[in-house]
Simulated scan of single mutants.
Amino acid sequence: MSSSLAGRTVLVTGAASGIGRAIALAAGRAGAKLIVGDIAAAGLADTVALLAEVGAPAVSAPCDVRRQADLDALFATGAAAFGDPQVVFANAGILGTPVEVWDCPEAAFAQVIDINLMGAFRTIKAALPAMVARGSGVIVATASVAGLIGAPGLAAYVASKHAVVGLVKSTALNVAARGVRVNALCPGMVDTAMLDALASDQPGLREALMAMNPMKRIATPEDIAGAALWLASDQAGFVTGHCLAVDGGFIAQ
Rank of each mutant, 00 (worst) to 15 (best):
L117H: 04
E100Q: 10
G96T: 09
A79N: 06
P85T: 00
M118Y: 11
D84R: 03
R122F: 06
L117F: 07
A110D: 15
D114F: 04
W102M: 13
W102E: 15
V99A: 15
G78K: 03
I124K: 09
R122Q: 02
G83R: 00
G78R: 04
L95W: 12
I124S: 13
D114N: 08
Q111G: 12
A80V: 07
P98C: 01
A127H: 02
V99K: 14
A73Q: 07
F121G: 09
A90I: 08
A110Q: 14
T97V: 13
A90K: 10
T97D: 14
Q111I: 12
G83V: 05
A76K: 01
G119L: 05
L95Y: 12
A127M: 03
A92H: 06
L95C: 12
A126Q: 01
P98G: 02
A73H: 08
T97L: 11
F109A: 10
A90Q: 07
C104P: 11
F75C: 00
A110S: 15
A127C: 04
E106A: 15
L95V: 13
I94Y: 03
A110G: 13
P105W: 12
V87A: 00
G96E: 09
A120F: 11
Q111Y: 10
F82K: 05
W102K: 11
F82C: 02
K125H: 11
A92T: 05
A90R: 10
V99Q: 15
F89H: 08
A120Q: 08
G83M: 03
A108N: 12
